[in-house]
Design a binder for these strands. Structure first.
Lengths: 206, 206
DNA sequence: CGAAAAAGTCAACATGCGTTGACATCCTGA
DNA sequence: TCAGGATGTCAACGCATGTTGACTTTTTCG
């Protein structure tokens, strides 16, 4: 009985933690520290390569705390990786240079300050973790596809969105994960100039 | 002394195995069985996800045999994953449809019978295994880059090759690893029609 | 202050991993 | 036939993993 109540209480505590508070009890501090360390580890090593124990050692904190705060490694991953592509309103994008605008947007997103919590984590993790694959699919359906549909009036907008995504993921894969020399060394402007027309073509060719 | 000799002998045996023989002693049979099982496991789970023990169980054979035949898990991986893109001679490719020809070639390669020993294995493994990343770079430098250079006379052929690779890897990633619905469900012809012009553009635009 | 709750520590569990060396069996060739 | 090498089995090693429950310390608040 008491055990059951304690577990319920603990679970409530975990849930309530997900909202930020004004007075931020001590726990919120370590919670954020855990998330930051987890993001870094997941980014560098993927889901399988990152271990709860090493994340805990980096905080530093006892591994048991991670289980208390996030329930499981999967829970930690879900909490650490939240993707918001911040795609602009399709209406605000000039039609004639939408391709370059999109490529520039993603490069900023991937190489900005908070890049570690972005799609590259998912790329590294998706090969071995079903959750990561699912998240990628969700991002595609809820963020990329609608934006592309808003840009092209075409009825095969989903296919066009998928082709754009395949080019952008290929870019991210070669540049951040494989670090294939020519791709990794190009400047942002070079990439925009080369890939932009491709995206533009996927949007409006045919 | 005797130990040392035995080890040398064993190493010689391992090396000599890498050549195929006409009389194929019993060992060659199991060696091939191990390789086949390893290719399947590496393909489905990547380098880290595949375990020596599970590969052995699939043969079936004792895990110790794998160590005897290939020395280590890394050795098994190197032996199991040999990439030959079988790229045609650049001179034999019609200039005006080189893009579609290349895309069709890769689709055949990836979706043919022996697809499991191909690049998708490396994609799944490269996120966690340095050897896999190195192999991808080697394939790029020795097979893709020269072919592209032979097609375009351009002096930035390396960059063009890298852009083509980023598009093709993105395609493979979305279709075989992430199984992103629109990409995974397109027919080969649709993909050729859509991606072919992109590759063509990377070859000759500007 | 002092009790209750929250935060954090510690040791242990079961499991799977790559790898090793000693041992048993099979097959070949002199 | 039978010795010796090739082939295969077995048990164990040291290690790292995710997770758990009992425990101690710190913080909060009536």
């Amino acid at each position: 009985m008491t055990e059951s109540l304690a577990k319920v209480n603990r679970r409530w505590q975990i849930l309530s933690m997900s909202r930020t508070r004004t007075k931020t009890p001590k726990s919120e501090t370590t919670r954020q520290a855990i998330l930051a360390a987890a993001q870094r580890q997941f980014y560098e090593n993927g889901y399988d390569g990152a271990s709860v124990r090493r994340i805990a050692r980096a905080v530093p904190i006892d591994p048991a705390m991670i289980m208390r705060y996030f329930g499981s490694k999967e829970g930690l991953f879900s909490a650490a990786v939240v993707i918001d592509l911040k795609l602009p309103d399709p209406g605000a994008i000039p039609r004639d240079r939408a391709g370059t605008a999109l490529v520039a947007h993603f490069l900023n997103l991937w190489e900005g300050e908070r890049s570690a919590i972005g799609l590259p984590i998912l790329l590294r993790s998706a090969v071995s973790n079903q959750d990561a694959s699912d998240k990628i699919r969700a991002v595609f359906e809820k963020q990329v596809a609608p934006t592309v549909a808003g840009l092209t009036g075409a009825d095969d907008a989903d296919t066009r969105a998928a082709l754009i995504v395949s080019q952008l993921f290929g870019l991210a894969l070669c540049r951040y994960v494989l670090k294939l020399p020519p791709v990794a060394e190009m400047t942002q402007d070079e990439i925009i100039a080369r890939i932009g027309p491709v995206v533009q073509g996927h949007l409006w060719r045919d």
